[in-house]
């Protein structure tokens, strides 16, 4: 590994200042960053270790809002009775990430800000990949099993985060700190696709960090669920995931269905959501919503299986919600 400067700030202000240097990168649990550095995928001259900052690992009820610090560990979120009760989809998603060891290191902030797992991006020799500041996407003519069926443009890597999918269904927002202070970004605008900027996956500027994730009172306590399909039952990234929440008893007022690992950002199945509003979760309604969830999918050469997978998972997620 190339040598680098290691810094350990004790405050958010200090952290964002340290991040303003060229090729500085924030370190949470390190489960993604260390791999990137070992493989020299992205130039890294300075590591800003956020773990020295006190008070960023909370999981609490903040006047009705579920507030989770960016440094809260995925394992703690998965086993939190508060999260399981108020936002079950998030607890389920956190519990399905990787392995116990990684959940004990990995943080919520890091899980949202991780880089893509595209097997071309992760191959150190592909220096001309878009995400390495190149101008080529190998997935278009190569093996696209992992790649996007929605929203690809130039780059077809998918966002790999399970918690991002769950939080999208829970209407969460992300609190971001930077040199000019703090801002709160709705989760729907937190992630950016390649049409905006293929070099990054979120709105975070290089000198910004996530400090907290907030799930609003309106989304809390309503039935929600997260399901994930992957070749292995653990230590695997989703090939497709779904986070779903319905608000309203008997008749659905609001439905949110977020799909993971099918697009460069968490993908909201808006047609299915609109279709469900005002209806109840009867079997035929669920079946129609599941069909609509895959509407607009444009598979590449080897990922057409994601279309039935989306439909199958959405059907199972809504069926699970109907049973609540």
């Amino acid at each position: 590994m190339k040598s680098f400067e290691y810094t350990r700030p004790t405050s958010v202000q200090e952290a964002v200042q340290l991040l303003s240097a060229q090729n500085a990168r924030a370190l949470g649990g390190g489960t993604d960053l260390l791999g990137i550095m070992k493989d020299a995928l992205l130039p890294t001259d300075r590591v800003v270790d956020l773990k020295g900052i006190q008070g960023l690992d909370h999981i609490k009820d903040d006047a009705g809002t579920l507030a989770i610090g960016a440094l809260a560990r995925l394992g703690d979120i998965a086993s939190s009775s508060l999260v399981s009760q108020k936002a079950p989809a998030l607890a389920q998603a956190a519990g399905l990430v990787a392995s116990p060891q990684i959940r004990n290191m990995g943080t919520l902030g890091g899980n949202l800000a991780q880089k893509v797992r595209c097997w071309y991006f992760r191959d150190a020799d592909r220096t001309d990949c878009y995400k390495r500041n190149g101008s080529y996407c190998y997935a278009v003519l190569g093996a696209s099993d992992l790649h996007a069926v929605f929203g690809g443009a130039a780059c077809f890597a998918v966002h790999p985060s399970d918690t991002a999918t769950a939080l999208s269904a829970l209407d969460a927002s992300v609190v971001v700190a930077g040199p000019k202070g703090q801002r709160t970004v709705p989760i729907a605008s937190f992630f950016v696709g390649p049409d905006t900027d293929y070099l990054r996956e979120t709105v975070l500027a290089p000198d910004e960090i996530i400090t907290e994730v907030r799930v609003p009172p309106g989304a809390l306590g309503a039935p929600s669920v997260f399901l994930k399909a992957a070749p292995r039952r653990s230590i695997d990234f989703a090939r497709t995931s779904v986070g779903a929440q319905v608000v309203g008893t008997n008749v659905i007022q609001t439905a949110r269905i977020a799909l993971g690992a099918v697009a460069p950002t968490p993908h909201r199945a808006t047609k299915a959501e609109a279709f469900l509003e005002g209806k109840s979760l009867a079997a035929d309604t669920i079946a129609q919503a599941a069909e609509l969830a895959a509407d607009g999918a444009k598979p590449l050469a080897s990922n057409a299986y994601k279309v039935p997978l989306i439909k199958g998972l959405v059907r199972q997620a809504l069926t699970a919600l109907a049973a609540r």
Partner: peptide, 21 residues
């Protein structure tokens, strides 16, 4: 990868040996 001849599954993330689960 057919165009480049590179193995895309040379690591244990993408080459999927069964886990204990």
């Amino acid at each position: 990868d057919k165009p480049t001849g590179r193995v895309l599954t040379s690591g244990l993330e993408t080459y999927k040996v069964p886990t204990v689960r």
